[in-house]
Design a protein around this nucleic acid. Structure first.
Length: 156
DNA sequence: GCCAACGTTGGC
DNA sequence: GCCAACGTTGGC
């Protein structure tokens, strides 16, 4: 299967591109996804080696902050069973975990490609994350969109 | 299956 | 803090 591409949102207060870069293995479990569509992308469509645009959300400067790579297939998210976790889900059955996640590996930081610039750039205008009403924390990116993002990053 | 109420996301 | 948009829940 050929390499696919994704945009994954993270709140930098929780996990930023620097968190990923500075983690021991430069690799983090993408825990906390509690949306079925986003979960299904990880479970059904992601493959090891897929490219990831690391996006900072809910922060002063939202935008793409770096590149990463899918580093595992999907496996159960342990935070769903931890009552102390904000991601605790009392309705999830340990025998059939509801929530899964992949691991993500650091590739490199980029300049911050801010949301306003993304919106102002024609070649990026069809990115799913920019579409009206989109709230998904994980969205697919086409090979053409991936190339366009890299080109815009280089141009800046 | 419908749909109103409620919760969450996330930019501004 | 506001609010648009969308997802989830649960009564019926």
């Amino acid at each position: 299967m050929e390499r696919a591409y994704w945009l994954m949102k993270s709140e930098p207060d929780e996990a930023s591109i620097d968190t990923l870069a500075q983690s021991v293995s430069q690799r983090l479990p993408w825990t906390g996804v509690r949306n079925y569509q986003a979960r299904n992308f990880m479970r059904d469509a992601m493959r090891i080696g897929d490219g990831v645009l690391f996006y900072h959300s809910s922060c002063p400067q939202p935008g793409i902050a770096g590149l990463a790579e899918v580093a595992s297939t999907a496996y159960p998210d342990t935070t769903q069973f931890d009552p102390a976790s904000p991601y605790f889900d009392p309705r999830s059955d340990p025998a059939a975990p509801r929530w899964l996640h992949v691991d993500v590996r650091f590739v490199r930081k980029t300049r911050l490609l801010g949301l306003a610039e993304m919106r102002a750039t024609h070649s990026l205008s069809d990115l799913q994350v920019l579409q009206r009403g989109n709230r998904l924390s994980i969205t697919p990116v086409t090979p053409a969109q991936w190339q366009a993002v890299l080109a815009v990053l280089d141009a800046g």
